[in-house]
């Protein structure tokens, strides 16, 4: 048994395919008796696959892919629209911001000018008042001063007359007063 196998295998190895093909099982690919069967079933299988693919599978998959492509491009378009809208909104916002800032600046400037003018007016008024007051005061001071001199003169005349009288001189009021005046000037 063992030797049988050895010789059989050795033979097969040595002569290879030729011997094997001669054997019934040999190389089943070259057993042409089965070709008809295989070709028949192959054609059937190919036809089946062809009809499955061309009638159902391929149109469906192609449709799904096209639909997906459409959805994706629609989504991208929508996203771009939104992006444009967003940038428009941003521009509007920026513009509003700039406007508001300019408006605020204008209002501030106006207020400042108003205040300044009020202030100027007030200062001018105050200055005028102060000037009037000080003129008045000066006048008052001058009056007081003049009044004081007159009093002093009167007191001096009276004192001088009294002194003259006390010293026994007889002096009429007019002379004394003239003398006092001249002295006070001197």
């Amino acid at each position: 048994m063992a030797t049988d196998t050895v010789t059989h295998d050795g033979l097969a190895d040595a002569t290879g395919v030729a011997t094997q093909a001669a054997d019934a099982p040999g190389m089943p690919q070259l057993n042409f008796e089965t070709w008809g069967n295989q070709i028949f079933w192959l054609l059937l299988a190919l036809l089946a696959i062809y009809f499955i693919l061309s009638r159902v599978a391929l149109p469906r998959i192609g449709g799904v892919l096209a639909e997906r492509q459409g959805t994706i491009s629609n989504d991208i378009a929508a996203a771009e629209d939104l992006k444009v809208k967003a940038s428009e909104a941003e521009a509007a916002y920026d513009k509003a911001l700039v406007d508001a800032r300019a408006e605020a600046n204008r209002i501030v400037a106006e207020a400042k000018a108003e205040i300044q003018s009020d202030l100027d007016a007030a200062i001018a008024k105050a200055d005028a008042e102060i000037a009037a007051k000080s003129a008045e005061s000066e006048k008052a001071i001058a009056e007081i001063r003049a009044g004081a001199m007159d009093n002093v003169r009167a007191v001096a005349k009276d004192t001088a007359q009294e002194l003259v009288a006390a010293l026994g001189g007889k002096a009429d009021a007019q002379t004394v007063s003239a003398a006092v005046d001249s002295r006070m000037k001197g």
Partner: peptide
């Protein structure tokens, strides 16, 4: 029998 598997 490497070729047996191919038998129809």
């Amino acid at each position: 029998h490497p070729m047996d598997q191919f038998e129809v």
